[in-house]
Design a binder for these strands. Structure first.
Lengths: 188, 188, 188, 188
DNA sequence: AATGAATGAGTTTTCATTCAT
DNA sequence: TATGAATGAAAACTCATTCAT
């Protein structure tokens, strides 16, 4: 019978946090995030028990988005390369469309606030991409390299590419292509 | 900004900061750093005007070390690949020998405390490596890709490689080799 | 101040408050009290306008109980000493039976939340005991001592006795007897 | 070489706390105490690690004062009664002279912030008085009553007496006398 | 009336930086 | 110059109370 806890408000806080993190970093006061979300500072803690909890959930939310964005219109029938390039293009588009999310995720990823449980959960979200990568790797020159290393390499190249695209959005498409091709040479 | 008396003390602070950053992150209190350096908290500020200044200088110091380490025993007469591999091996050894420095540098690199002036200065330190990379790039498939992007890619692959080596030091050598070869496929 | 609907719920809150005060002190959050009472935190404020109001009413309620317990089976025909000892025994039994109430009352008594109006009302509840005490005093060595002081002394000795009984319930009866006898020597 | 930590300042904080506790209770903000002491809020924590620590030390300090005040001009050669009355008079004078200290101590005594270690240390400070009391008890009607109970009774009567003296300072002397005599009847 | 979300003032403690010694 | 006490502005979180439902 009381006001129900609004999922919309939760999302608003998460979005506010994303924006604030980009401009102020992870040390941004919770009060700023609350203000940006248009709520009272105390209310933030109705939705997230601690600041750390907020960050962990945001990390997951963004990873989730990155994972689902990646699979948009996935060409099930295409060959490996086309499938991988498809994902890559999706990522690129997302990064250009939502540079703030990309940047916030980058910050969260290197933060110590994110627990290893959260990180593991985040990786699980990416598992379908991991499988694709596995298939690519197993046929190429990195077939003997540990998968974890290959994933790390892909992530680092993807990050560098997205950063480049965000920095120079005019040639985003070209950078995107350059990035995958470079990675493809590495892997396949 | 008169040079403070004891350059040795300055170094001690920098080293202490490195160690403390690894365990506590960049939000570590200056007092902890001072204690680790064996001096009073107030004294730290005779050597570095602000905490931010300390971090910027540490960044530079570590970049400097990475740059000079890279060029150790540089084989002037060897071919491009051997020259590049040489640098890479030097980096790998350094990362394994001084994982703390590597980790601290990684943290500083993503921090907002580091000003763009500092970053630019940091890149300048790497210029000789940049030139080598430039020569490698200009002959390979990335010849049309902007140099800044190529540098970013190299850095990201190098970081991923060093992280892997630190995490699994038993196979450090193999990871090191896998890393360069992957990068080489990308570039040359 | 319209009487709230359910008097039962009011009692439940009061009882919950008693229990919570014992374990958490007077700074216990109202929410904890509400939860202990099995109601929503907001609901508490339909029954008591403020936390302070709740505490004042609880004080009165407990004083009331102490007063009525004291007069249980009062031996109208007995002599003064027997009458007084009767009351004292009743108190002792109550303290051992309801140590929580005793402890909560002790806390409330020293609290600044309890207004002087409430304290006066509390004393009024004790008036019949006061009268008995008055008769005892007027015949003994304290006949020149102000009544308020005598009451204070009785209360303090009673409190000390009840605390002792609660702490060492095995010899409760003995402590109870020791307490009155001591008091009686003081007064009569 | 830096400003030495001033013992005077420590005392000033303790005194400020005493005054503030009397008017605002134990929930008084530390900032108020600091302001009353004429120092910055943060400075308080140079002298006392936490608010709780401050309270525990204050408790001890006041107990200490009560103990040493009690023994002032102690008549070593006098008989038990005169010795005891002497202590009592000293307490009474102290209570009238420093009603704030008396009140603050009363508040602290019932507070849950005071650890049992602190309480034990406090009791130790009173040990010489305890010994005297022991000798008095062992010869009188309470010789079979546990010492802890006797101490509690003495304390409670002393508290009631001091309160009365503070409330009605004009007849302080009389109240003081009435108090001891009452207690003496109880004990001896 | 009952619920529990919303509010925002208030609290303790931390910490970069300053400054007396 | 070195020291560490002094400063005071945060910052995260709490909680009595209000209010929409």
């Amino acid at each position: 019978m009381p006001r129900p806890r609004s999922d919309d408000k939760r999302k608003r806080i998460l979005n506010a946090a994303t924006r604030v993190i980009v401009t102020q970093g992870l040390s941004a006061p919770t009060m700023g995030i609350a203000k940006e979300a248009g709520i009272a500072n105390g209310s933030l803690f109705t939705y997230f028990e601690t600041k750390s909890e907020l960050f962990n959930q945001l990390y997951l939310e963004l990873k989730q988005e990155m994972a689902s964005v990646a699979m948009k219109d996935f060409p099930t029938e295409a060959d490996l390369q086309e499938q991988f390039f498809h994902i890559w293009r999706n990522w690129g588009n997302w990064a250009v469309r939502s540079p703030e999310k990309r940047k916030a995720l980058a910050q969260l990823t290197v933060s110590e606030e994110i627990t290893s449980e959260t990180r593991i959960a985040g990786h699980r979200l990416m598992s379908s991409i991991g499988e694709l990568l596995e298939r690519i790797r197993s046929a190429g020159p990195m077939r003997k390299v540990p998968m974890s290393f290959v994933i790390a390499l892909m992530n680092s190249v993807a990050d560098a590419t997205m950063d480049q695209m965000i920095q120079d959005p005019k040639h985003a498409k070209t950078h995107c292509k350059n990035g995958v091709e470079a990675l493809w040479r590495m892997l396949a």
